[in-house]
Design a binder for these strands. Structure first.
Lengths: 198, 198
DNA sequence: TGTACATCAGTGAACGCGCGTTCACTGATGTAC
DNA sequence: TGTACATCAGTGAACGCGCGTTCACTGATGTAC
């Protein structure tokens, strides 16, 4: 029963965690939650599985976050942020599109775009979760707009919004269909069209 | 306890349903399931609620469909089909885009596009459900392609796929964000861009 | 510096609840004669 | 056409299970003196 993987250091059986260790645990919970929610959906993963993935019991989630819903809200923000980091080095829209609409991204929703992974579940989420999602979406828009060479200001943001919608929609469709050929085709024709426009 | 709304005709308390009545019940279950799954997600609605919405008990779902999953598979096909019917009279891509990317559609997921409503839940569904989704997606592609004036054959289908992806992605984003202004903006800029292309 | 003790991250048992599914039963329908 | 009975759509109680949450407890950490 006593797993304690989160605190198994120095070989002792049990050890109350220091503030530093608690902060590490929190980060680990967020990383695993951000992955699991994207892989299995908000309702597809329970508090036991979330705790276990971080090497802790479910009770620790309540110490750190208070409820599953508040963990979800923080995990959504975390997931967006981690995904953005993966694209931090990208300096042009073409590269962004290629990377986003890749088979590598399609096969790995757990480390991928949050919109593509759980976008259609958002209307049914709490206010806190939707606020986190909305704020992150606005940041995505601004980041995408910065990569677009033509236009400026509001119109550039408009273009960024349509690009984000197209990429997310294409990835959702590509992951949803049970036909490899069609899935590949959705990715490649969307890539081609976006790179023609950008 | 004894509700029997599905069979309350002629004022009698109980009456075994005829084959005709059973077929009507089946249709009613499918209509309600197609609505509820789109409104609440595949995991967001249970067999009790599904039965009750059709005026029956959950047991009747098992007589008719055998399991919740098989009902979901049939409901997905049904939902796509009913949505397509709403667009049956549309004769050009511009009108289709306007109707799809409308606030009316955004506010009514239960009678709207299945991709927009539960698209990102599809990768986690059973083979039967995904097959129903995939078949319906192919039909959507063919129908959309038929509305596109330029190009032909495979290239026209390619354009249709990108349009479908953009519309679904835009609707998912517009429904997900907790900011009316941004939501309206996503719809209008996507409409503008698609009508420029089509 | 050493001692006494409050703090609080994490544990694990327990809770009420709703889930999907099973099953014995009901009784009008629909059919065999 | 009339009678006897098999069929089967739908009922409702029961099942085992996993869910999110609560809570008394543990014990090293971190602090007050």
């Amino acid at each position: 029963m006593n797993k304690l993987r989160g605190a198994e250091l120095k070989g002792v059986e049990w050890m109350k965690v220091s503030k530093e260790k608690a902060a590490e645990n929190r980060e680990r919970i967020l990383n695993e939650a951000a992955r699991l929610f994207r892989e299995k959906g908000a309702q597809g993963v329970g508090v036991d599985a979330l705790g276990e993935a971080a090497g802790l019991t479910h009770g620790s989630l309540y110490s750190q976050f208070g409820s599953k819903d508040r963990l979800l809200a923080e995990a959504v923000a975390h997931a967006f942020s981690r995904f953005a980091t993966k694209f931090g080095a990208v300096k042009d829209a073409d590269t962004y599109v290629s990377k986003y609409l890749s088979t590598e991204h399609r096969e790995n929703p757990g480390s991928g775009c949050t919109v593509a992974a759980i976008g259609s579940e958002m209307p049914r989420q709490s206010e806190a979760v939707r606020r986190a999602f909305t704020d992150a979406t606005k940041r995505s828009m601004a980041r995408m707009a910065a990569l677009l060479p033509r236009r400026r200001g509001r119109e550039r943001e408009d273009d960024a919004l349509v690009m984000l919608a197209t990429m997310a929609g294409a990835m959702i469709l590509a992951r949803a269909v049970d036909d490899r050929e069609l899935s590949d085709r959705i990715l490649s024709v969307s890539r081609a069209q976006l790179q023609r426009v950008a």
